[in-house]
Write a protein that binds this DNA or RNA. Structure first.
Lengths: 258, 258
DNA sequence: AAGAATTCGAACAAATAAAAACATTTACAC
DNA sequence: GTGTAAATGTTTTTATTTGTTCGAATTCTT
């Protein structure tokens, strides 16, 4: 392989990257019959325009870098139920809708089900949801602003609330940390509770997702009651009598079996 | 396995982890035909990027769960200059200030320098900056809301702009994709340009960070001129005559040598 | 718990590669 | 041909990476 114009040689070098993790300067110099200095100059030129990154001794494709946000994955707990509940929620969604997903694990399961490429807009304060959907072609992800809680992959605070006010969505999907027998909805965090409240207000319809283990549990803050939500999805582990009482408060109740 | 440049070898090592929970130093040394010391150094480097966690006799994947926002890492390009520029910018910052950092790689280098725990508030549309600072005790990170650009770890759009308007900061630090000889500031993306413009407005002082390779370059959108910024930091590779002309436009000019 | 066997990390030396400066060739226009 | 600019090669200097040795630390074995 000899006497190539420099541009052609650089194009050839680019092909090289398909083969392996990287190429070495000395190897390329030998193959093209040019000096190593020339190869270095080629690589320097390619580095600017193409997605390669120079290294000592050669070059490689630019690394896909990942941003790491700490994240305690609590998805395992009652995961079956949560997935079933998410699947039921998925059925409520029509193409073209604007959805709000909160930062619960059930919402995250729902996000995973949105990957089949319908045209959707997802508004969320959850970095986990955003991460899940970032590469999904049909879905536009709008991340709400806010303060990053240490050790929690989501955004809360006045900024988040303010951001949320900008939107009008078709559906809000949210979880809860507890649902009292009187239908009160509880959250463990005040800031999350405030955000949840606003979500319900800016969405046309709101949908509460909670497996049966949450029924009867309470937590720090009351963010509202079942009377504020339009649809409540839970699993068949929930006692029928309680659900009957809940229904009187207003929401349509959907039970799924895991 | 043939001789690979060190960076390529480290990338290969990372692949190894896909197969199992861990790898051993001796095994890797044999496979790559290098000394164990070299492998240890590789592992130490990878550990520094927190991709892996070292163990006696080898290494394993980091335990903690992470959210992956992946993107092409361009940090290596002119990194020396960018780090020097970031260091100069760091000196401008006083404890207690509220800072805006944009989504350039130079801002990311600056973020890394803020880790020494002063009391600071950082407002940014960059997931990379947020990720970098999320564990820093003295720093509160406020992530702006917005649309996640595919393949880019940052937020833009009307929501971002609206979010920004909520704030008043002491300093805005931003990069540029090009600076014309007439002092015009260029960005490759219209939405980023709009965001940059607002940043300058809501910050008391604005500071442009750009290595000399940007001088003379142009890009799609003009986001403003040097007359709009208070401080311009670049490296000593910039031609003195040009800098003199820039100074007439108003900004204080700081040059650092890499 | 003590001793043996690994493994690690620091220090230094050797090898290798990059960058800078300068010389040479090539390509092309006139 | 000759001048000029771009590209390539050479040489020297500088920086990075790797290998080796050896004492310290860690794990395993008994």
């Amino acid at each position: 392989m000899k006497n190539l114009p420099s541009a052609a040689r650089q194009a050839q070098i680019r092909e090289r990257f398909a083969g392996g993790p990287g190429v070495s300067v000395s190897e390329l110099a030998r193959e093209f019959g040019v000096s190593e200095m020339t190869i270095r100059r080629d690589l320097a030129a390619l580095e600017g325009q193409s997605h390669i990154q120079r290294t000592h001794g050669g070059a490689m494709l630019t690394q896909r870098m990942m941003l790491e946000f700490d994240y305690r994955d609590r998805r395992e707990l009652h995961r079956k139920q949560k997935q079933a509940i998410a699947a039921a929620a998925r059925k409520l969604i029509q193409p073209g809708q604007r959805l709000i997903l909160d930062n619960g694990t059930t919402s995250l399961e729902l996000a995973a089900l949105l990957k089949d490429g319908q045209h959707l807009t997802v508004i969320t304060p959850s970095l986990a949801v955003a991460s899940e959907l970032q590469h999904t072609p049909g879905v536009e992800v709008i991340l709400l602003g806010g303060v990053i809680r240490r050790g929690s992959p989501d955004l809360t605070g006045p900024v988040t609330e303010n951001c949320l006010e900008l939107f009008a969505a078709d559906f809000a999907f949210q979880g809860a940390d507890g649902i009292g027998h009187d239908g009160a909805i509880y959250n463990t965090d005040l800031r999350l509770a405030r955000v949840d409240k606003i979500m319900r207000r800016v969405a046309n319809k709101s949908c509460l997702l909670a497996d049966h283990s949450k029924i009867g549990a309470t937590a720090l803050v009351r963010s509202g009651t079942l009377a504020d939500v339009d649809i409540f999805i839970t699993d068949t582990g929930a006692p029928a009598a309680t659900l009957k009482r809940f229904a009187i408060l207003g929401p349509q109740i959907i039970t799924v079996k895991p």
